[in-house]
Design a protein around this nucleic acid. Structure first.
Length: 303
DNA sequence: AAACTCGGAATGTAGAAGAT
DNA sequence: ATCTTCTACATTCCGAGTTT
């Protein structure tokens, strides 16, 4: 794997990055626990056909932050290049913040996939990598290592390179599980599948529902605040209201500018009657869709 | 029957704080 | 270094009443 420390080599690598349409990335940070964390490495994988640790570029920017800035300006700010990270919000802090464009996060992507398709206890890179069989056993001990010391140990470089490779493979797997295009969905198949699992679902759903209610009531009655994994909490809500005419009167008297509009419900509109015409009423139209499902016909019960 | 409305409850979300 | 959890706030959902 190319481990680059010389400025000209790194510049060259950045230049070739700008030619890519998609990059898989990871970073390592020195002094991450202090209030002055510093970018140590930028690991880049540019070739989608060669997802191996040997093709990962490791850019050592710890003592040459101007090269990191160059990377940020030329790659991170460029909306034409898709940048894929795991937990991108963290790396973003060091790589361009909100000005970074076209950033994809495999953590966020994984979270959008429903549990039944991706049944994992958490979305750590280690967990997902092992779940998809990308690597049978991921060693994370280097993660909290010292990324300021130089030279870096072979173990550290190996870890740094592998992490990006995992991200790239994971990205592939997640895209395979992504939502199908509504335009080409098989509606017939979906309705059939719905009827198939409807019965089982209702049984489980109603039971879960009832268990939750019983637990809530029982914990309240027996004053149990928590039992392993279940927590009962309460919150008070206080809301305040004033009669409309009083609010209008006071604000007018004191000349208070309130930029508020009032929802004109059907009944209000009736009360206002013709006065409606004289008001600068703001209209907003929106269409909402809802799916209603009726009991299946007796004949075609699927069970 | 079906389509609207509405309000409160349920659920989602962003960002900070906390935990290995 | 990477997530998970927490909290305040926003958005969506859903049942029920009303109208078409």
């Amino acid at each position: 794997m190319p481990y680059l420390t010389q400025a000209e080599d790194i510049r060259c690598a950045i230049a070739s990055c700008t030619q890519a349409s998609i990059l898989w990335l990871d970073t390592e940070v020195a002094d991450y626990k202090t209030d002055t964390p510093q970018l140590s490495l930028i690991q880049v994988l540019a070739d989608g056909n060669d997802l191996t640790a040997e093709s990962v570029g490791i850019l050592d920017v710890l003592y040459q932050p101007e090269l990191a800035d160059e990377f940020i300006a030329k790659v991170m700010y460029n909306p034409a290049i898709e940048k894929v990270f795991h937990n991108a919000s963290y790396d973003r802090k060091f790589l361009g913040k909100h000005k970074a464009k076209n950033v994809t996060c495999t953590l966020e992507l994984a979270k959008t996939i429903p549990y039944y398709r991706l049944p994992v206890p958490n979305y750590q890179l280690k967990t997902l990598t092992e779940y998809f069989g990308i690597c049978p056993q991921v060693d994370k001990t280097e993660q909290t290592g010292d990324w300021r010391k130089r030279p870096l140990s072979p173990r550290q470089l190996d870890y740094a390179a592998k992490d990006v490779v995992y991200v790239a493979h994971l990205h592939r797997h997640l895209l395979d599980l992504a939502q199908p295009d509504p335009a080409t969905e098989d509606i017939e198949a979906l309705t059939l599948r719905y009827r198939q699992i409807e019965h089982r679902w209702k049984q489980l759903d109603t039971e879960i529902q009832q268990i939750k209610e019983r637990l809530k009531a029982a914990m309240q009655a027996q004053n149990v605040k928590k039992v392993h994994g279940f927590r009962l909490s309460s919150q008070n809500r206080t809301s305040k209201k004033v009669a409309f005419h009083q609010l209008a009167e006071v604000t007018k008297k004191l000349g208070i500018e309130l930029d508020i509009s009032v929802q004109l419900t059907k009944s209000l509109q009736q009360k206002l009657g013709e006065v409606m015409e004289e008001l600068p009423v703001e209209e907003e139209n929106k269409t909402t869709w809802r799916l209603s499902i009726t009991e299946p016909e007796e004949e075609d019960l699927p069970f």
